[in-house]
């Protein structure tokens, strides 16, 4: 059970992101919390595919006879990282535009829907 410490680290990252989302009101800090959750999920996917004693799944100068870690979680993590980057850019653009129009970044003060 103590051998599952890498999984616990991913869960702690996700919990920190949830704590940020629950307690902060600044839009930039909300974006940071969502990015923390994304990092935790990506790390969790990569650790799911680890094989004990495995090397990277690349045959260029690989040590002969070594086991390789699972390549599919790494490929899906690559997809996930790029999508996270796109959503982060979109969130920051929204934050910039909201600050331009309202003069504040407090999510509690941006309730009314008139533009």
């Amino acid at each position: 059970m103590i051998g599952n410490f890498p999984f616990a680290v991913c869960m702690i990252l996700i919990a920190l992101g949830l704590w940020t989302l629950l307690t902060r009101r600044n839009l930039i800090k909300l974006a940071i919390g969502i990015t923390l959750i994304e990092s935790g999920v990506n790390l969790f996917l990569v650790t799911l595919g680890y094989v004990r004693g495995g090397v990277a799944p690349i045959y260029t100068y690989a040590p002969p006879g070594a086991r390789m870690v699972l390549p599919t979680p790494q490929a899906l993590t690559l997809t996930s990282i790029v999508i996270g980057l796109a959503t982060t850019a979109l969130m920051l653009a929204f934050a910039v535009v909201i600050y331009r129009h309202r003069g504040t970044l407090d999510a509690g003060k941006i309730r009314e829907l008139k533009g």
Binding site: Y59, T60, P63
Partner: peptide
């Protein structure tokens, strides 16, 4: 074609 197994690339 790639030779199977570890190679220099």
């Amino acid at each position: 074609p790639v030779p199977p197994g570890p190679n220099p690339g």
